[in-house]
Design a protein around this nucleic acid. Sequence first.
DNA 1: TTTCGATGCAAGCGCTGCTTACATCCGCAT
DNA 2: ATGCGGATGTAAGCAGCGCTTGCATCGAAA
Lengths: 223, 223
Amino acid sequence: MATRVRATAARGRTRYHHGNLRAALIEAAERLIEEGGPESVTVREAARRAGVSSGAPFRHFPSRIALMTAVAEQAMTRLLAEVERALTRTAGADPVTRCAAFGEAYFRWVERNPTQFRVISARNLIDFEGSKTLRRDNEVLRAAMTDVLEEGRRKGLFHYPDMHRAQLAARALVYGLARMCVDEHFAQWDVPAKGAARAMRDVFDLFIDGLTHGKGRAARRRR
Amino acid sequence: MATRVRATAARGRTRYHHGNLRAALIEAAERLIEEGGPESVTVREAARRAGVSSGAPFRHFPSRIALMTAVAEQAMTRLLAEVERALTRTAGADPVTRCAAFGEAYFRWVERNPTQFRVISARNLIDFEGSKTLRRDNEVLRAAMTDVLEEGRRKGLFHYPDMHRAQLAARALVYGLARMCVDEHFAQWDVPAKGAARAMRDVFDLFIDGLTHGKGRAARRRR
DNA sequence: TTTCGATGCAAGCGCTGCTTACATCCGCAT
DNA sequence: ATGCGGATGTAAGCAGCGCTTGCATCGAAA
């Protein structure tokens, strides 16, 4: 795909047909997002970088939103994979560890790929509801969190009034931290750039402390 | 201002000068945001609604971002006022109540004014750093939260490892819930539309429970 | 080999943010 | 009262955008 594109470009010859324009456009869009944020992505510029006319993309993506949605789908799949890796890595471990691993994996991915996360949550730029992939991946993520929390309760480690609110709190905490990270609320919050993940772990520990009824675990886990 | 505009419009006569274009443009922008989100705001359309030529706004706002920033400043001031009202109302009450009042006031304002909140946090559409007003109001908000948490600790009600992380957790929780609300994560989260505030209170209670080392307050406070 | 659908191009429509040159008005010093 | 200058409006226009249309080109199936 990309090889083929670069090959033709290197040869100086331009075939009439691109070869794999769809993938090339997504790649170009990703790079544009990296450079100037999701809002700055332009179908024309993506086409330009793929070495193709301004009308060509619309054969593959009926609209700019469709292009951005494709980018979001890729990003979401990667985020999900990261979280699932953390969960299989800690399979069998105690729910507290697994819960923390979940939050850390999620947050760390966002921290390392802020622009990609921005696309996922830029719901005015993508058609979230219209994408089966996005909805499915999101649901899988939610179910995974539910499982971890439920596991903790079954084993008598977490004590929360009801599953629903624990779930919501956990989600709000992780999502909130992630958003604060990509929205750059951390600078004015005197959290050193490098320490965002550390801060996140601290905060999550505090939350788990709440679930386990404050046995001071957070203080012990601090290092 | 608006009266004067409507007066001239009603009279059918159009004066050369508008009278209060600046305010009229902000008002028009707010209405546009209400209708189609912050991204859909157009300087030209705002000018159109103010009954003025497409170049006129640039006498008052050098760019679209400047216009949006003005809107954000208004919104932020209102949010801050709402929170401060809740804090003065509960002045003298115990920190747990005040803490909950803070979170509720913040969240409920966002819930009632989702579009305005979207502008505040749409940092790619506004010049947050460049606005003294925005930075000051934001700082006041942060300081208010710090005060409440510190008060709770002084009176021996909250027990958290350190101020910094409690503060961060609280902010992440409220901000996360607010974002989930405006990003419409609640529909797929089986939180009934009307119950968002209730869910928020439940979650915040859970958090305060964590701070007070789980004496079951959340369960009692539930009604 | 022919044909036909998929995929590309060129041109263009209406919109955008923003600039420039000019018109109009209000308030203030005379 | 007058007339002048700065503030505030208009009209026209630039480049860039998303998206559409009509036509050119190609590769693979018949």
